[in-house]
Design a protein around this nucleic acid. Structure first.
Lengths: 146, 146
DNA sequence: GTACTCCTTGAAGCGCGCTCAAAGTCAATT
DNA sequence: AATTGACTTTGAGCGCGCTTCAAGGAGTAC
C-alpha cells in the first residue's frame, strides 16, 4: 500500500475542480499539506476527497474563500472550536436561504417574460428555427412540457 | 412641466445599486443613454426603473454582464428579436434552476453539519468556555510528512 | 464672493478566485 | 541517451464587475 492515494488530476476530476485550484486551495490553507509520493507528487486521501467536496459545494454557494479559511483553521484546532464553526455555518446558511429566495424570484420573472415572448411571437407569426412546435393551419392542440 | 425624472442618486437607491454602477451600466450599453436635465444631469424615467430592476434581479443570479449586453442589444431592435431573446432567457432560466438545486443541496448539508456540531457541543458540555478534547469526529488528515 | 453639494467625465485601481507560464524533476519508453 | 508526459515549484497574470480617483461644472445658500 505504499503508493495509495489519488493523484492531483484524479482528485481534480473527482471534485469538479482543476489541478490548479487544488494547489491553490492548499496554498491558501483551505486544505492542509497533502501527503506526497516518493517522487514528491501529491497523493490525496479519501478524507481529502470528502473535505474537498464540501469546499466545492460551499463555493457553489458563493461563500468567500476567506470564510472557508477561517472555518478550515478552526477545524484544525479540534472539537473545541465547535461553537465558532457552527456559527459560521449558521450564518452562511441564512445567506444561502436568501440566495435561494432571490433565485426563485428571478426564476418566476423569467417564466413570466418567456411566456410574454411566446405571445409576441404568436402575434408576429414567428417560428423558432430548431425547437419550435410546428403549427399548421389546421393544427391540433399540443401539450408541451415546461 | 414634464421636467420630471429621477436623479441618479434617487434611482440608485431605488434599484439597490450605486450611482457608479448606474453610469457603468450606461457606459457598457446595458441601458440606453439616459435623458438629461438642462444642466447635463441624468434624469431617469419610470421605464428605466423597470429595466434596471430587471437587470439587478438578473445580476443577482450571476448572469454575466456580457449576456445582458446581448439581450439589451436585441431588445433595442424591437419585437423581431423575440425568439433570440426568449432563447437567452430560457437558457439562463435553466442555469438558475441548476443554481437553486446546488443551493438547496448545500442548505441540506449545512443543516446536517450544524446538527452535528450541536451534538459535539452537548458531548463536550460546551457553552463558550474551552476544555480541550482530542477526538475529531470529522475527517482529519493523516498522511502528513515531515 | 465663498462654500457646499451634487453632478459630470475618463482613466486607473482593486478584490476575488483562479489560471497560466517557466523551469525543473522523475519514471518509463524508445 | 533522448524523448515523452505527468507531475513539481514559484510567481506573475487575468477576467470580471465594479469602485475610486482626479478634475471640474452647475446650482443654491449665506
Amino acid at each position: 500500500m505504499r503508493n495509495a492515494g489519488y493523484t492531483i488530476r484524479t482528485m481534480a476530476e473527482r471534485c469538479g475542480m482543476t489541478t490548479h485550484t487544488l494547489r491553490y486551495y492548499e496554498r491558501v490553507g483551505l486544505i492542509q499539506p497533502v501527503g506526497r509520493a516518493r517522487n514528491g507528487h501529491r497523493r490525496y486521501s479519501e478524507t481529502d476527497a470528502v473535505w474537498l467536496n464540501f469546499l466545492h459545494c460551499m463555493r457553489d454557494t458563493n461563500i468567500p474563500i476567506r470564510e472557508l479559511q477561517r472555518y478550515a483553521a478552526l477545524r484544525e484546532q479540534g472539537e473545541v472550536t465547535s461553537l465558532e464553526r457552527r456559527k459560521i455555518l449558521e450564518d452562511h446558511q441564512s445567506v444561502v436561504a436568501t440566495q435561494i429566495e432571490a433565485l426563485e424570484k428571478a426564476h418566476a420573472i423569467l417564466t413570466h417574460k418567456i411566456e410574454n415572448y411566446r405571445k409576441i411571437e404568436e402575434k408576429l407569426g414567428l417560428r423558432g428555427s430548431s425547437e419550435a412546435v410546428e403549427t399548421e393551419r389546421e393544427e391540433q392542440p399540443v401539450m408541451v412540457m415546461a
